[in-house]
């Protein structure tokens, strides 16, 4: 098979194994939907004082899409790669003629496709249940921001595997990193409730930049403009490149335990 055909072949099987894995589907697909329903139910009739004031439901739709994208990329990749590594499946595939970059490309493709599906799903639920407008006119900005974020968080997820020693440690390490950042970055608790010191702290990390960029593409402050937040995207890209560098340097194919 040629390079691209081989990536497509790998991607097809990555999709199969993803959709057949109940834990992956629950945490990546069902869990964000549940979170959106909970946040909308609990805080539904309030407004959030950002971008000139938006309804809480309007705030949470892009917030939960942000979480879904990170979940489909960084979280899902870090977990599935560590499990495959410790099972010896990565080592085994390295013993075949398949080039490593094909394998990684298939996994990244899988993550980005799931992230795009989650954009469609959460946006549709937001529209149908809460009347949150679909920002068709800013679709290019939304897609660019989403794919940039997805790519950066894929690199970070692959890099993170190097710090995860075993299958059992995967979920705790990933959650210990991401859950606090969701709280501090405005994903779970609206911006206007967070002390400015917290937001400054969160500004150091990529979750905040991705959320800001995505939020402003989805719910811009004023009319006009492309919806692209170049400052946030640049910082996100810097994190992605750092992740890529660490991934290339420290990613391993052989089991660490045993």
């Amino acid at each position: 098979m040629s390079g691209l055909a081989l990536v497509a072949h790998q991607f097809r099987y990555d999709q199969k194994t993803f959709w057949r894995n109940p834990a992956a589907v629950f945490f990546t697909v069902a869990f964000p939907v549940i979170l959106l329903l909970i946040f909308a139910t609990v805080f539904g009739d309030q407004t959030v004082d950002v971008n000139g004031g938006v309804e809480t439901t309007t705030y949470y739709v892009p917030a939960i899409i942000t979480l879904s994208v990170i979940s489909a990329t960084m979280q899902s990749l870090a977990m599935s790669l560590v499990i495959a590594r410790e099972d010896g499946r990565l080592k085994r595939s390295r013993g075949t003629p398949m080039p490593p970059r094909v394998f990684i490309a298939g996994r990244i493709g899988n993550s980005i496709v799931v992230a795009l599906l989650m954009l469609a799903l959460i946006a549709a639920i937001g529209r149908v249940l809460y009347g949150v407008a679909l920002p068709w006119e800013r679709l290019p900005a939304i897609l660019v921001t989403l794919v940039a974020g997805a790519a950066a968080f894929c690199c970070l997820g692959i890099a993170l595997t190097a710090a995860i020693p075993s299958q059992d440690a995967a979920a705790p390490i990933v959650n210990a990193l991401l859950l606090p950042l969701y709280f501090l970055s405005g994903v779970f608790i609206p911006d206007d409730q967070l002390p400015s010191g917290v937001i400054h702290f969160a500004d150091v990390f990529p979750v905040r930049h991705f959320f800001e960029a995505f939020f402003n593409a989805y719910v811009p402050a004023g009319a006009g403009g492309s919806g692209l937040e170049w400052g946030n995207l640049a910082l996100l890209a810097a994190w992605g490149v750092a992740g890529l560098f660490l991934a290339v340097r420290f990613f391993r194919w052989t089991p660490r335990a045993g």
Binding site: M1, L6, H9, Q10, Y13, K16, T17, R20, N21, A84, D87, G88, R89, K91, R92, S93, T96, P97, M98, P255, G258
Partner: peptide
């Protein structure tokens, strides 16, 4: 000590590797 992908069938596991 290799473990296989639990979510693929015998035929799919072989077809995946055949592509390599």
């Amino acid at each position: 000590s290799g473990r296989l992908d639990p979510y693929l069938t015998v035929r799919e596991s072989l077809d995946l590797y055949a592509g390599y």
